[in-house]
Design a protein around this nucleic acid. Structure first.
Lengths: 157, 157
DNA sequence: TTTAAATATTTTACTATTAAAACAAACACA
DNA sequence: TGTGTTTGTTTTAATAGTAAAATATTTAAA
């Protein structure tokens, strides 16, 4: 123990980091709530559906179910349900993988691609508006910090 | 239109802010996943339960259901279910409000208080470890940015 | 080649989440 | 005093999320 007195500042670094985390959570939750609501109101869709479509848009050739859940960092069973509903609505297809009868590749349909491109551009505007307070330099500085944290988190676990 | 040329950098600020948002999400999701898993493994509880208990711990006198959902920024119905389960397990109680037979105040039980205090201190350690890369100055600088953003979000909506 | 282990996905059971509807009680006011 | 509106909470129906079990297939090993 380095501070044997009453309770002057027991572990300031730890308290500060906790405050940091609570601020981050507040910002993230607020932004996410706004984006969810706008996706619902303007496009009748949801954030997880948007996320799946975004991942598939980045990987034109499609992704296996397991790759999709790993990219999105959610469970396999979760992705199964979301993809089921996207298939129902004609935004994605499940394609059997030649040479491995267990696996399925999920891919955007043309309709899925067209709709996503439109939604993504509007979405970018929402995000930009929400972060309007941020100057480019400030954004860059904070991103550097977040990148370091993300990297250190990747190394753990 | 200010940039009538091909597509040199259509709206760089907007792209940068989008990247900022994706970094923030990644960090938040990773940290949240770790914390969820630890809460489950070490304490057999969940993040929403922890959040409710944290809110009630800050408000010793208890909170109405509606105040609770407003503090946590989740829907009324959501809180109903979480509180139901916390009541079942003896961590919180619903107390009728004198003078308004519609309302209920939710409060921590002694057991709830004791357990929360213990969990909260361990939780603080987890968060501190996850953010170990962050220097105090850096944390302070980033928090200032997040505070400005949180404030500007509060003003909108 | 049969068997065992690993892999890919889905299913199951449960908690969490929302929006909207349903209820009950309080309030406003003619 | 009714009666219509607002307020506080729960219920309902749907999607989302998890861990764990189940299934099917592939790979490895004996």
């Amino acid at each position: 123990m380095t501070t044997p007195l009453k309770k002057p500042e027991q572990r300031p670094a730890s308290k500060q980091r906790l405050r940091f985390w609570l601020r981050l959570l507040k910002l993230q939750r607020h932004m996410e709530a706004v984006i969810r609501e706008k996706l619902r109101a303007e496009f009748g869709t949801t954030l997880p559906r948007f996320d799946v479509m975004a991942a598939l848009h980045q990987h034109e050739r499609g992704l296996r179910m397991s790759a999709l859940s790993s990219v999105l960092k959610v469970s396999n069973g979760n992705v199964t349900g979301i993809v089921d509903r996207l298939v129902l609505d004609g935004y994605v297809v499940r394609v059997p993988v030649k040479g491995d009868r267990r696996a399925m590749v999920v891919r955007l349909t043309q309709k899925g691609r067209d709709d996503f491109i439109h939604m993504a551009s509007v979405h970018e505007g929402w995000v930009s508006d929400l972060l309007g307070e941020l100057s480019p330099d400030e954004a860059e500085a904070m991103m550097a910090g977040m990148d370091r944290l993300n990297q250190s988190l990747g190394e753990q676990t």
